[in-house]
Simulated assay, not measured.
Amino acid sequence: MAFHFRRLICCFPALLAVVLHLMHGISGQFVGVEEPIFAPPPPLVDLDYGGDGHVPALFVFGDSLIDDGNNNNIASFAKANYFPYGIDFNGGPTGRFCNGLTMVDGIAQLLGLPLIPANSEATGDQVLRGVNYASAAAGILPETGGNFVGRIPFDEQIKNFETTLNQVATKSGGAVAMADSVSQSLFFVGMGSNDYLNNYLMPNFPTRNQYNAQQYADLLVQRYTDQLTRLYNNGGRKFVVAGLGRMGCIPSILAQGTDGKCSEEVNQLVLPFNTNVKTMISNLNQNLPGSKFIYLDIAHMLEDIVASPATYGITTLDKGCCGIGRNRGQITCLPFETPCPNRDQYLFWDAFHPTEKVNLIMAKKAYAGDRTDAFPINIRELASLN
Rank of each mutant, 00 (worst) to 15 (best):
N166E: 15
N166R: 15
Q167P: 01
Q167R: 15
Q167I: 05
V168I: 14
V168K: 04
A169D: 14
A169M: 12
A169C: 13
T170E: 13
S172L: 05
S172P: 00
S172R: 03
G173H: 11
G173V: 10
G173R: 08
G173T: 09
G173C: 11
G174R: 10
G174K: 10
A175P: 09
A175Y: 08
V176Y: 07
V176E: 15
V176D: 14
A177E: 12
M178L: 12
M178D: 00
A179N: 13
A179P: 03
A179F: 05
A179W: 06
D180A: 13
D180L: 11
D180T: 13
S181W: 07
S181A: 12
S181G: 05
V182H: 01
S183K: 14
S183T: 10
Q184H: 13
S185K: 07
L186N: 02
L186I: 15
F187P: 01
F187E: 00
F188Y: 15
F188E: 01
F188H: 06
V189A: 06
V189D: 00
V189R: 00
M191S: 03
M191G: 03
M191V: 13
G192N: 04
N194H: 10
D195Q: 07
D195E: 07
Y196E: 05
Y196S: 05
Y196M: 10
Y196A: 04
Y196P: 06
L197F: 12
N198D: 11
N198Q: 13
N198T: 07
N199I: 01
N199M: 01
N199D: 12
Y200W: 06
Y200C: 02
L201W: 02
M202E: 07
M202R: 09
M202H: 06
M202D: 06
F205K: 11
P206N: 02
P206Q: 03
P206M: 01
T207D: 01
T207R: 04
T207C: 02
T207V: 10
R208Q: 12
N209R: 11
N209F: 10
N209E: 08
N209V: 02
Q210C: 08
Q210S: 11
Q210H: 08
Y211K: 10
Y211G: 04
Y211W: 12
N212V: 05
N212D: 15
A213V: 09
A213L: 06
A213R: 15
A213Y: 12
A213I: 04
Q214K: 15
Q214M: 10
Q215G: 10
Y216L: 07
Y216E: 07
Y216V: 06
A217T: 09
A217Q: 09
A217M: 09
A217E: 07
D218R: 09
D218S: 13
L219F: 07
V221D: 08
V221K: 02
Q222L: 10
Q222M: 11
Q222K: 14
R223F: 00
R223M: 04
Y224H: 09
Y224L: 06
T225K: 08
D226I: 14
D226L: 14
D226Q: 14
L228W: 04
L228S: 03
